[in-house]
Design a binder for these strands. Sequence first.
DNA 1: AGCACGCCGACT
DNA 2: GTCGGCGTGCTC
Length: 805
Amino acid sequence: MTFRIAEVIVDVAAYPVDRPFDYLVPEQMQSLIECGSRVKVPFGPRNVLGFVVGLKEDTDVPIDKIKEVTKLIDIEPVLTTEMLQLAKWLKNKTICFEIDALQVMLPSALRAKYEKMVTLQTDIENLPIDLQEHFKKSGRVNYKVFEKLHLLQTLKMAISHKLLAVEYVVKQQGNVKEIRKVKIADDANQLNEISAQISNRAKKQKLLVEWLIQHVGKVMDPETILTETNSSMAVLQAVIDLGAAKFVHQEVYRDPFTKEVKKTTSLHLTDEQTVALEKITSSMENKQPETFLLHGVTGSGKTEVYLQAIQQCLNDDKEAIVLVPEISLTPQMTERFRSRFGELVAVMHSGLSVGEKYDEWRKVHEGKVKVVVGARSAIFAPFDNVGLIILDEEHESTYKQEDSPRYHARDVAIWRSEYHNCPVLLGSATPSLESYARAQKNVYTLLTLKQRALKQSLPTVEIVDMREELKSGNRSMFSEKLVESIRIRLDKKEQIVLFLNRRGYSSFVLCRDCGTVVQCENCDISLTYHRSNEKLKCHYCGYEQHVPRECPQCQSDHIRFFGTGTQKVEEEILKLFPEARVLRMDVDTTRQKGAHEKLLESFGEGHADILLGTQMIAKGLDFPNITLVGVLSADTSLHLPDYRAAEKTFQLLTQVGGRAGRSALPGEVVIQSYTPEHYAIELSKEQHYEPFYQLEMTMRHQAGYPPYYYLALIQVSHEDLMMAAEYAQKSVDYLRSNLSFNVSIIGPTVAGISRLQNRYRYQCLIKYKIEPKLIPTLMQLIKLYRSDWIKKGIILTIDLDPSTI
DNA sequence: AGCACGCCGACT
DNA sequence: GTCGGCGTGCTC
């Protein structure tokens, strides 16, 4: 069946073009073009990339308006029909442009880049003098050249006289990496002839050809040939010129794995693990789109359950997707998958280069792998026979994308599970309240692992009241208890992890005379001191400045930095324990690619005694020699203005606690706090999830937060304060008059960060239980914004189920 | 988005 | 008179 008309979503993210456009398919393309293919199409005056989302016989578009598809970019479509459907669902669910939903499913290498080029339409002599020189080398020159040299007027003239024309070139990366190999001629006789021709003086060439005769027709690495025959490149080139062999190019995948891994086999399961696994596999057999919540204490062996469930899935000849929160942080995790499933695993995460990401994607697309382990976006892995989807550390907020499309990987996972009739497995030691509540209501099936896999007891946890320390005259950031515990481990040559819950607590610069805190020029946020380059930096917009010598407000020179950054802690440790080897892990030491892996590996091999870091070390670390975990200040995340503050604190403390005593050696955890009586801190002591859940649910119920209510967050920003406030109010008025009475609309209020990148920010929060009118109303609001407010410089964003407010 | 078209003010 | 300011409207 062939179709003449293609429906195309063009690569332009704008409200009026957020719909399919019809194009004629040239005859020679008709048998090749498919839904999900990328095409190049003329759009207005330019050429853009687009996705074919439909094919049909006829169109209502008048014949004089319709244009032809210029080029079919892919022989194999890059998106399946599943993905096209999913994009439509995402568009509705998250209120985004369809093109954004489509793009997010593909590696960035497949995204187009556009260039405006000027082409010569006549003899070069006819051009104005100052333009001539630019076209000497080539008849096509980048438009930017003229822009920079302020030649636009002359250019415009030349264009209107048809001497030059503007062309829009679609460029796309998607470069396949090739390596150069040597293909030796197939014909031995021919090689003998060549050998005979070579002058006797060219001994090396002769020897090489003799050697090549032994390997007729083979394709080999140039390096191998050179070392085997002890020749140089010049010699090889010479015989290639004679026709004895030729260079060929072979497609390869870039290999992001630096380390070889040993093959492992299934471990013996505990009774609890066996029960969980059986439930999952039977659901797989029944082809049920069932969602499981695997609640297992830290160290209970959730990963082994994943691995064996995946094994089952592979046995059924189906594929599995495993999501891990920002995977580059847990190389140990990926290693476990690679060691079990070897070459069948692709890994996708932000630490890979564009090319590496593309290659991992291609492995999936071409069916070379059966398992994907990756961060959030791996949920779009283009498998077509998914048998199991796993989200590890289900409660992590990184599963929610913070810009358009603002999707939650869990929602996409459940959508895909319904499409493929397969189970979803959510795993966590500290499930999100939403998920646990759903499990309580039997929307999800709860599976519980109460015991640690190796029957180790949970670490002993001690909570130190820092107020008492202060009263007894200890003003350092280490309690006596912690100092003592560290000393014991150092003596015993056991390892220590110190955890600095740094959020909202980083070093800032403060004037001791007037109390001024140095703030960012563009945002209402204090700047963070970075020791490595002696600069102050804004973590939100990237603004940098030197550390001021005097206070910008009162010119006093009593200005210095405060707070507890990891660097500061490191200094303090070294003062107390000069002999300790400290490994610091923070943004500064892990910026380089692969730095995480290296630091962790070095710690695992015992090259340091103390690992010091922020959130990033809370997860996944699994080293047998760690017996002490210290949390320097448990409260910092507790006082954030976010309804999830208690939940996040509980999760964090439970996670870090789980790092200690994972093998035979018993573990100890010391938690320092200024509010030790808070339930989130107290209950994390024994990993008492259930009572925490009950208490926190009561709080959420009282305050009207999820899981009792759904949230939608509307943000309005503008360079002018009054404009931002005015339009925020307009939004609220609009919502109030269109939504039901039982929906509560809070705001407009000033956003948490009231000014960001020179824009004033207001927000409004919608709380609702069931509101069928919500999506249509928000759609109307966004229509209003996109068709009118946007011109006035307003930026409005809608976040359904925001992860933070 | 990005561009063309078109209608009004201040300049060679 | 014309150059160029940016409001308006369109893109198969």
